[in-house]
Design a binder for these strands. Structure first.
Lengths: 234, 234
DNA sequence: CAGAATCCCATTCGATACTG
DNA sequence: CAGTATCGAATGGGATTCTG
């Protein structure tokens, strides 16, 4: 109960709604997720609930303080909720709200746009979740329409399943040892990036990057061919 | 030439690429346009080149300093260029690059998403450009496919022409007294918002909000019916 | 591990004044 | 009009410490 600080009368201190007085939806979006790190936190939760330390580990450079603050304001904005997992686990996780999950197209469009910049550097590290989301962004829906498959994408400890069907490709964290038609095991997200976007041949990545492919290789080739980075401008 | 400041060795001070070390396109987008005000500046240029003072006037609360800084970093990022208009005018304007114009879908998706928030307040002021962009966002492309028209949208001093054709609706600033099939004159952007999104009847806005409609009113009704805000979540 | 609380410096912002 | 210069205040955010 500190009562000092008489230099400012503190009329409506902050909470969102402070930055831009603008009815434009874009401006309002920026009030909600326009602070540094906010949108990347949303991105990390896009494929399911995560714990504080998991989010922090995926965001190189964020401090505990800032992550705490951002999680608070995102919760307040209704983008995510904090939830206590059932009994035995009993661990706290952060999960997007229904509306929070609807931010995916916006995240994708931003990524698609930035990827077309002449100055985008794709050699930096990448989180497993952002690699998965980029695949959902860059998939050729036309070509994928005639391709049904269940594909395992295993990056280090992170295990995902992509269900390709009718041109759509939802991705979830793999519950357990689910059966898949093809499985890609990679030590790092960037290995998959080299394969899907760099079109580096399987053999090379298997020899030098620790890639392991299970299942029909011709099918794997067809799957990889579904993904392509948008053309640069200029 | 101040040479003090030995407290920091200043290795690679800034320039974009500083914030997030992340190959994810979304993260890179945030490096480029994630600073406060940046994306709104891009928005204001989305319908054509503008002068410093015009941008400033559309962004309530931005200071000259910050606008100058943002224009510089956006130019550096390749999002916009500064250009001197031909001879008689000889005035400086800022214009998006080809790639800068490609940001529109990202801006739209952010706006569409935010508009679905339960806490979005649509009663705040709105710039003419953001009203126009929102119309491009909220148009029902299905319904618009069978509707060809040239529509004038005149907000105070700002004059726009929307060319509805094949479900698309490019909007440009009106060059002069171009002929249109319908024209809406409104003193404020919010008047149009009330009409297109609030579905306030023409008569009421004509009586109390200074709305003036030229052309076939039945056609105008059909046109207005093409626009609708996305449903709130919840 | 998840976070709250402090400390404290660097950066950023906005207001104002000034200039070509 | 289109910025530049300066200054004080607010904010940001990293590091560290503490707690359940």
């Amino acid at each position: 109960m500190k009562l000092q600080k008489e230099t400012k009368v503190d009329e409506r201190p902050r909470k969102h709604g402070k930055w831009y007085a603008d009815a434009c939806g874009t401006a309002f979006a920026l009030e909600l997720i326009g602070e540094r790190w906010s949108l990347l936190i949303v991105r990390e939760l896009m494929l399911g609930p995560r714990r504080f330390s998991e989010v922090r580990a995926s965001l190189p450079g964020i401090s505990a303080k800032v992550l705490t603050e951002r999680l608070e304001s995102l919760e307040e904005a209704g983008v995510l909720t904090r939830r206590k997992l059932p009994s035995p686990a009993s661990v706290q996780v952060y999960e997007l709200t229904e509306w929070g999950y609807l931010a995916e197209p916006a995240i994708q469009e931003l990524g698609r746009w930035a990827a077309r910049s002449p100055s985008h550097d794709p050699t930096l590290p990448l989180s497993p979740v952002s690699m998965m989301l980029s695949m959902r962004t860059m998939i050729d829906h036309q070509a994928a329409a005639s391709f049904d498959a269940k594909v395992g994408l295993f990056i280090g400890e992170d295990r995902f399943i992509a269900r390709l069907e009718g041109g759509m490709m939802p991705i979830e964290r793999a519950s357990e040892d689910e059966s898949v038609e093809i499985a890609f095991h990679a030590p790092l997200p960037s290995t998959l990036a080299a394969m899907f976007y760099g079109k580096v041949p399987f053999a090379e990545l298997e020899a030098h990057a620790g890639l392991v492919i299970e299942g029909d290789r011709a099918l794997a080739e067809r799957f990889v061919a579904l993904f392509e980075l948008p053309p640069k401008v200029g």
